[in-house]
Computed example of a mutant assay.
Amino acid sequence: MVVAKNKFSLKRASIAGAVAFTAATLGLAVSEVHSQGNLVSIDGSSTVYPIQEGVAEEFQKNSPYNVVVGVSGSGGGFEKFCRGETDISNASRPIKDSEAERCANNGIEFVELEVAFDGITVVVNPDNNWVDAMTVDQLQTIWEPNAQGSVTRWSDVNSSWPNDEMSLYGPGSDSGTFDYFTEVIVGEEGASRGDYTASEDDNVLVTGVERDRNALGYFGYAYYVENQDTLKAVGIDNGDGPVKPSQQTIESGNYAPLSRPLFVYVKKSAMEKPEVETYVEYMLSADTITPIVNEIGYVPLTRRGYLNQKAKVR
């Protein structure tokens, strides 16, 4: 296991590998544990994953209950959630109407909870000395579907930039970050060029940009914070000059249009189980979640904000 940089540090090893490791340490008896009624099952967004991981680690220190947190992207998490396979689904975007309908068809009622705020961060390699900021129009030029095969070099975006081929990294189509980014940057959710390295594991994207001078990628702010010594954040110009992501600019909304809320969806029937009820109450305690969110690098809700979220599940 990779040594963490701080108490709630993101694991530099593959998240998928970390989840597999966690499942292995629980042994092959996960189904047995679940049948005994003391397992909280969570899946979904890789962006929300570090928050949930931090909460789960603290919760299990003084609890008889076990928590398993998986990562399959917001869309993949909702697929499992709406099939009734998980108690809680992490999401970096609101649930879609089609997903809510699928849940309803399967008799699954849920509560939507906000747990933090994020700013999708556009990053380049630190050896990139020609890009400090980009306009929303330039990002659209790079990522829109018809850019595939036609916008392949930095000079295709700005003639003063090098005539070197770009390497692009971004979330896969099951990711809520992908959905949100394409909607606010390209103008249509899910509309994107396909010739880029895609992964639901943000650490794969981080590593790709770190290793390539001509790389550009995007992912949740916490993954930039964890790796800011080896990545460079790009300021985003939405018409009022470039703004770089920070807890202050995300909280104020000045980091536009890439600031967004992060969500957790809880199955109502699961709240009848003491392990899930206890976990959700613990997760929504400001004293529990605020230091975790702060240390990871996202922006927490106010104390009143978490009380309002807690009221939704009571």
Rank of each mutant, 00 (worst) to 15 (best):
V2E: 14
V3M: 12
N6I: 07
K7R: 13
L10M: 12
A13M: 13
I15S: 03
F21M: 13
A24I: 02
T25K: 15
L26M: 15
E32H: 09
V33S: 12
L39F: 03
I42D: 09
S45A: 15
P50I: 05
I51E: 04
E53L: 14
E57S: 15
Q60T: 15
K61W: 09
Y65W: 06
V71D: 04
V71C: 13
G73A: 03
S74L: 05
G75F: 00
F78K: 08
F78C: 04
F78V: 06
R83T: 10
R83Y: 10
R83S: 13
G84P: 03
G84T: 00
T86D: 11
D87G: 00
S89M: 11
I95G: 10
S98V: 11
C103V: 04
N106A: 06
F110K: 09
F110C: 13
E112D: 07
E112V: 03
L113Q: 03
A116R: 09
G119R: 12
G119E: 08
V122T: 10
V123R: 02
V123E: 05
D127Y: 03
D127C: 04
N128C: 04
N129H: 10
V131Q: 01
T135K: 04
V136Q: 07
G149C: 02
S150A: 13
S150G: 00
R153S: 01
N158S: 06
D164M: 12
T177Q: 06
F181R: 04
G190C: 02
A191H: 01
R193L: 08
G194N: 12
G194R: 06
G194M: 07
D195Q: 07
S199E: 02
E200D: 12
E200M: 13
D201Y: 11
V204F: 10
L205C: 12
T207E: 14
T207Q: 15
D212T: 13
G217Q: 13
A222C: 09
Y223D: 03
Y224N: 09
Y224T: 04
V225N: 10
E226V: 07
Q228F: 00
K232D: 10
G235F: 08
I236K: 06
N238E: 09
K244I: 07
S246R: 11
Q248G: 04
I250K: 06
A256Q: 11
L258E: 00
L258F: 03
V264H: 07
V264D: 11
K267T: 14
S269R: 06
A270G: 02
K273T: 06
M283I: 04
T288R: 08
P291G: 07
I292F: 02
G297F: 00
G297K: 01
P300I: 08
L301I: 01
R303F: 01
R303E: 15
G305E: 08
Y306H: 11
K310C: 01
K312W: 08
K312I: 09
R314V: 13
